[in-house]
């Protein structure tokens, strides 16, 4: 199967309100035929509990479409949140976009 990669970027504080926007973007990627989606959180400074809930919901949406969701470039706050909630075992997280491209993207 052909790999169709799409990147979704977010910035600032990821809470209930702007997580909805990310969910919409992910849905658009899926309808656009993407089967590998990367969430680039380089500019995200903080994720709260609602934001985390939306990420998990997105992951389930992506998986039910037989696609893959990855995350890269998370800040310390997100790292700690992911560790405490075991999300680092649920999401595959890459240090940066380059690592994602090396590991996942087929040239």
């Amino acid at each position: 199967m052909n790999q169709v990669v799409k990147v979704v970027e977010a910035e600032g504080i990821l809470d209930g309100s702007n997580a909805t926007q990310i969910r919409r973007q992910i849905s658009q990627c899926l309808t656009g035929g993407a089967n590998v989606i990367l969430l680039d959180f380089k500019a995200v400074t903080f994720i709260d509990s609602s934001g985390l809930g939306a990420l998990v919901a997105s992951l389930k949406t992506v998986r039910s479409s037989k696609a893959q969701l990855y995350i890269c470039s998370i800040c310390d706050q997100v790292k700690i949140l992911f560790e405490l909630t075991s999300m680092n075992r649920v999401f595959r997280v890459f240090a940066d976009r380059a690592e994602f491209e090396r590991e996942i993207v087929r040239s």
Partner: peptide, 17 residues
């Protein structure tokens, strides 16, 4: 609960556990 430590400080970084 995480409310006691999970917030941004003046430096725009999380204070932390």
């Amino acid at each position: 609960s995480d409310g006691i430590y999970d917030f941004l400080t003046d430096d725009e970084v999380a204070w932390g556990l």
